[in-house]
Design a protein around this nucleic acid. Sequence first.
RNA 1: GCGUCCAUAGCUCAGCUGGUAGAGCACUCCCCUUUUAAGGGAUAGGUCCUGCGUUCGAAUCGCAGUGGACGCACCA
Length: 505
Amino acid sequence: MEEVTNSAIKTPDSSEGLSASRIRETRIEKLSALREQGINPYPYKFEKTHNNEGIQQKYQDLPAGEETQDVISVAGRVMAIRNSGMFIDLMDSTGKLQLFSHKENLDEATLALVKQIDIGDFVGATGTIRRTPRGELSVKTQSLQLLSKSLLPLPEKFHGLTDKETRYRQRYLDLIMNEETRDTLRKRSLIISAIRQFFLNKGFLEVETPMLQTLAGGAAAKPFITHHNALDLEMYLRIAPELYLKRLIVGGISEKVFELNRNFRNEGLSPKHNPEFTMIEAYQAYADYHDMMELTEELVSSVAQQVLGTQTINYQGHEISLNRPWKRLTMIEAVKDETGEDFNQIQTREEAHQSAKKLGLETDPAWGWGKILEFIFEEKVEPKLIQPVHIIDYPKETSPLAKVHRSDSRLVERFETRINGWEVANAFSELSDPLDQRARFEAQLKAREAGDEEAHQLDEDYITALEYGMPPTGGLGLGLDRLVMLLTNSPSIRDVIAFPTMRPK
RNA sequence: GCGUCCAUAGCUCAGCUGGUAGAGCACUCCCCUUUUAAGGGAUAGGUCCUGCGUUCGAAUCGCAGUGGACGCACCA
């Protein structure tokens, strides 16, 4: 088990040049030297009594030059070595702490070990706490243990790792070198945790629905295709959990359900799109889209308050207030306010085409009234919506899963929440009429036959479920990654996903 | 998919109108025991992304490719 094969020694990472591989070879030689001294460079356990932040806090009032007799043990990665090992910067997940290893305080073996420590190694240290005359809180080392030998050189200590490609491909290096990355990904975790707690506190039941589906429904997007061998069946990675969550509402497992998990869409990559991304979907029986607006506002503002301690955020130079209530604007009003074109007056498809033309927009002759309204909205209004706003009452023809508006049959009860111009949430009064649902699916099928690859597929079993009866239900979908981008001021979705999709090198 | 820009040591970067590659950090060795990007000295480290071309001569110019960033398209 202690044997190291020649091939292990002689196979450096293919991306390394000579300089790095020489450093690596030197360090492998150090491994043998350590073992000859009876030191296992990869031991099993260390009794760590404190983390670095805990020490910094506990002794924050210790004056410079003072020393305590408290004996503690800390552990972490060596980030810098000064004065031939007398000073070591030790980093753990909570922060930095200096080790002070004076030759007068150490036995010969420990002093020898200090000399063999390299930047990047994990070490554990036991000693007393003192603050140096220059004010740096330090562990005055009594004993030192190597906890893991690092074989590869870390990036430069001052400039760190800045190359974006390397930061995404070797996220572990990015995390070691960049506090900002650690902070962003930790905040992501806190945000997820706050969201989960928010729903649980409101009585929502967390559920899981299939990622592998025989029919990729619930959204308009291209799916990833895969194959199940035993069933000899073409399957899809889900593009949305929506139709399964509503089946659970039909079944009555709970009147409130939510799922927080991955969706997969076979589309382009961009600073706002990753092929796999995290979606929060929530469904509440006996509720409508007005209730979902309340839920969305409460969720986002309370998560910001909890994780950031404020509801005013700064995103790439824009100050955004998440304080409730958020503005609500129908799509028709939004278009009228911005362009003067009033789709309450524009009734026919021909008039709609003319309206778009007047605004300098090119339309596809196949588009109907609703599609053109939505297109004008996206082109002319959307980029200007920086502050949170619910855009409500979408055209029926582009929303096949939403219930017809109770007072305008051209529209559905749907809203999208825009923050910084982005679609952050999408919600409906869910369509519960099975016959209408079938008609809407059939319209989508026609669009699919006409070449729209992303039109919804017809899900017979879902219609069957609706035929057994689904209560009036409000549904909400919320893109987690974009929310995290906003709350962490991250310019790219890749900054908020630990391992973003990359082409293999 | 299209366009623009980028690719030089492990990392961060210089390298001029074409003349054959440099710095700092890291590594190795020496000095140095109260440092904070420690300091001083000496060494070592290169497929200049790949290929083809132009040229007496290419890191540098051209074409193609690969990878990346950004923008557009796609994302109803």
